[in-house]
């Protein structure tokens, strides 16, 4: 979906800013909102670039810098931690050889931490883009990553 199509879904009002930004982030392979897109959106809803940037920089789901095709977000909060016997984060870091906040050189994966995603009854959990994966085990994490890598997911 291109930017104009996204914008045309919403009335040109600042209250729809966050909705538009999420859509743009989703529609972009690299999951971010570019400077040009940001300026276009600001003009569309009639606010300043600074006001949009303020919003962009506040919410964790939004990014002003390019990310991987698949953004992995690992829950770091207590209920997941208590059930995370094998260490989800370490497994992913082993597999992808990147640190938190980094993107793999092939631009396929970015690794981030997330606040609780409400899957504490099936902890530990993580998200890849908008898919949620729960009851994670070492093998499960590796196989999920492999599926994305091979294009199965």
């Amino acid at each position: 979906m291109d930017l104009q199509t996204i914008l045309s879904k919403y009335p040109p009002q600042p209250q729809y800013l966050i909705e538009m930004l999420i859509d743009v982030d989703d529609a972009t392979e690299q999951h971010y909102v570019s400077e040009d897109e940001l300026r276009t959106i600001a003009a569309y809803v009639g606010v300043r670039d600074s006001q949009v940037y303020s919003v962009m920089s506040f919410y964790t789901m939004l990014s002003t810098t390019p990310r991987g095709k698949y953004v992995i977000q690992v829950c770091k909060d207590v209920p997941c931690y208590l059930n995370d016997d094998f260490n989800v984060l370490k497994t992913i870091q082993d597999e992808l050889a990147i640190g938190i906040g980094d993107t793999t050189p092939d631009q396929l994966f970015s690794l981030e931490l997330t606040a609780c995603i409400g899957c504490c009854d099936e902890a530990p959990a993580m998200r890849v883009n908008h898919e949620t994966y729960t009851n994670l085990s070492d093998e499960k994490v590796r196989s999920i990553l492999e599926s994305y890598r091979s294009g199965l997911l």
Partner: peptide
């Protein structure tokens, strides 16, 4: 906006 760690009832 259920975000408190440990809560999932609203979901």
């Amino acid at each position: 906006d259920e975000g408190e760690p440990g809560n999932f009832k609203d979901r």
